[in-house]
Design a protein around this nucleic acid. Structure first.
Lengths: 125, 125
DNA sequence: AATCATGTAACAATATAAGTATCGTGATGA
DNA sequence: TCATCACGATACTTATATTGTTACATGATT
C-alpha cells in the first residue's frame, strides 16, 4: 500500500506517514519499495510483534504525562517528591509494559476479523 | 509566603505561581490572603491530602502520554487497537492512582525532615 | 524516457504551555 | 485618609513541539 493511500485513510499527509513508518521500517516490521508498484508491506511475523514494540518503534518512549522536571534537582523538597512519584511510576509502567508487550499484532488482526464478522451479522449485505 | 517569594524559589514568575496555586486553593488545600502581610498558607491537614489530590487539583487530569486520539472512531482497526490499549491503560492507571492516593503530604514532609537530617550528618555545620 | 513512489530536507501552520505586562481589588499600617 | 502591598484576572507575547506542506532527489518499473 502506498503512503498516499494510507494518508488518505488516516486523513493526513503522505510525508507524515513516511515519517512514522520509517520507525517501523528501521525496526524491521515493515518494508518499503520504491518506484512503480511500490509502497509498504509487512516484513515480520505479526505473532512476534507486540503493541509495545510498535510504540517503541515509532519513537514513543514517553508513556506517562507526568514525570520528573529535573532528574537530579537541588531542591530537597523536589527530591523527596520525585522519589515518591518515581516509585509509583515505576510499578505502573512495569505493569503497562507487561500488558502491552503481550498483545501481538496477529492477535489484534484476529480481533479485527471477529469485529468485522459481527458487523456483518448485524447489518448483512 | 508570597507568590513572589515562591516564584523566586522555583525560578519562575509570580503570575505562574498564582495560576497553579489557584487550583490548590479551590480544592481547599491552601488559602491566600491579600494586602500587606498577605500571601499563601496551608489550609488543610496534610495527613488528608495525597499526591493524587494535588495532581488533580492543579489540573493534571492526563496521566498517560498515550491514549485514544478518537474516543469513538469509525475505523475498525482503530477500534480494535483502542480496546486493547484501553484495557492495559485502565489497569495501569488504577495501580498508579492507588499508589499516589496513599502518599500524604504529611508523609512527604516527614521524609523531608529525614532527608535534611541525613544531609546534616554528612556535612555538619 | 516517462512515470511512479519513497527519502529527505526545509519551511509553514497549529496547539499548548510558559512567561510577561497591566490593571483592579482588598487589606494593612502610618 | 492615603500609600503600599499582595492577590485576582485578563490580555498579550514568547517558546516549544507536533503536524502539515512543499519541493526535490533517488531508485524502480514499464
Amino acid at each position: 500500500m502506498t503512503s498516499d493511500a494510507i494518508a488518505r485513510m488516516l486523513g493526513t499527509n503522505p510525508v507524515v506517514v513516511r515519517r512514522t513508518m520509517a520507525g517501523l521500517r528501521d525496526a524491521g516490521y515493515v518494508r518499503s519499495e520504491r518506484g512503480h508498484g511500490g509502497g509498504w508491506g509487512i516484513a515480520a511475523d505479526l505473532e512476534t510483534v507486540s503493541l509495545l514494540d510498535v510504540h517503541r518503534a515509532v519513537g514513543g518512549s514517553r508513556i506517562f504525562a507526568i514525570g520528573n522536571e529535573h532528574s537530579n534537582p537541588n531542591c530537597a523538597v523536589e527530591k523527596v517528591v520525585n522519589a515518591a512519584v518515581e516509585d509509583a511510576l515505576r510499578d505502573a509502567e512495569a505493569l503497562l509494559v507487561a500488558r502491552l508487550g503481550v498483545v501481538s499484532l496477529a492477535e489484534l488482526a484476529r480481533g479485527f476479523e471477529v469485529h468485522c464478522a459481527q458487523a456483518d451479522s448485524v447489518a448483512p449485505k
